[in-house]
Structure formats: C-alpha cells, structure tokens
C-alpha cells in the first residue's frame, strides 16, 4: 500500500522540518509545547504494542523514530539553550488537560475498536492525536507568529493523515475492511489541520502585509 508509506514518510519528514527550523532560527517562537507533549503521549500510549507483538523491522524502527524525534523536539523546546529561552508559555495556554486529554477519553469511550484495555488505549491515542494540534492552533490565533511553523511543516503534518485516509479507502477496496475508529479520528484530524492551514495562511498574509 503505497499511500500508507507516503504518509509515514511525510510524518517523519515533519519532525525533521521542525527540528531543523528550531536549530536554524535558534528559537522556538510560536510553537506550542503542549501540542508536542500530547504527541509524545499519543506515541507512548499507542506504541505500548512494541512490548506486545512484532510486526516488522520497518514498523518497530518507525515507532522508535517517532518517539525519539518527539522527545528530541521536547528537549529542544524545554531544556536546550538558547532554544528553550524563547518558549512563550503565556501564549501556550490552551486548557489541554481539561479539553484534550479528557475530550479524547470521552471520544474513545464512544468510538473504539474494542473494550479490552489495550484496544481502548489504542483508540484513545487515535483521538488524542486527532485533537493534538488544537493548542498550536490556539497559539497561532493568539500571537500570529508563523516564523517557526513553516508551510512545509504544516503541509507535511496535515497531508500525512489525509494520505492515511486514502490508504484506508484503498485497503477497503481490496479487502472490505474498515476501522471506524481510525477513519473517524483521521477525518476529524484532517479537518482540524485544514482549519490550522487556513489560519496559518491568514497569519502569513497579515505578517507579510505589515512588513510591506
């Protein structure tokens, strides 16, 4: 399934773009730490299966790469000088415990693959990922700083889930299997990214307007 590999690759590229951008600008202005923290929670919850079964070398190495890239981004934003000095905690104030962690839990109780603990956790990670961009969206609307969030980053992250949807449709056409949790979560996620992209373009335009 080529679409799925394109999606995985785009996801990986998005981490690299963000790391390179932070290092290049030597700051993390405009970036939401809360969004990155939620991504780490997503991967830690979903990839518990690393200890449960083996899929492939590709699968295991990608999971480890996703976790380590996110840990590295978090390290840069929170601890590594000078990058961490520019973290704007005052603007990164979306109540993520109240709305994202709890909201995803409610969604996972409503839409899930199974009631077994692992399946519930897996479904929770799908919903958590779908909502993860909200603190970044909130921050972008608040400060309209797009220096670090390049269009490549937004594009790679947004398009990655879209490619997964294409991959699920492709899979459905071949086998007739459909995972409603993944599909619904993926649709919500893609819609939120489209919204994010919309505000991103507006901020980009207004920023350029001021400099002209």
């Amino acid at each position: 399934n080529p679409f799925r590999y394109i999606a995985d690759f785009l996801h990986l590229v998005s981490f690299l773009i963000l790391i390179l951008k932070i290092r290049k600008t030597r700051n993390c202005l405009g970036l939401s730490f809360r969004t990155q923290e939620i991504y780490l929670a997503v991967f830690c919850v979903r990839y518990i299966d690393l200890f449960m079964y083996f899929v492939s070398v590709y699968n295991t190495s990608m999971k480890l790469l996703y976790i380590s890239s996110t840990v590295f981004i978090i390290y840069l934003m929170k601890f590594k000088k000078p990058y961490c000095l520019s973290y704007d905690s005052a603007s990164d104030d979306f109540p993520h415990y109240k709305f994202i962690y709890t909201g995803a839990a409610v969604l996972a109780l409503l839409v899930h693959t199974d009631l077994a603990p692992f399946e519930l956790g897996w479904s929770y990670s799908i919903w958590l990922e779908a909502l993860a961009i909200i603190p970044q969206l909130h921050m972008l609307q608040k400060i309209k700083d797009v220096e670090n969030i390049t269009s490549n980053y937004v594009g790679a992250l947004g398009v990655y889930r879209f490619f997964y949807i294409v991959s699920w449709i492709y899979k459905y056409s071949l086998t007739g299997d459909v995972c409603w949790t993944s599909l619904l979560g993926g649709i919500v996620q893609t819609i939120l990214y489209a919204d994010f992209l919309y505000y991103y373009i507006i901020s980009l335009k207004s920023g350029k307007g001021m400099s002209l």
Binding site: M52, Y53, N59, M62, D114, A116, F118, E119
Partner: peptide, 10 residues
Amino acid sequence: QYVKKMHDEL
C-alpha cells in the same frame, strides 16, 4: 487472547 488484533499502522 489479550491482543485481539495486531495494529500494523503507525
């Protein structure tokens, strides 16, 4: 069986 299905996607 505890693991009902194997999730091969990331």
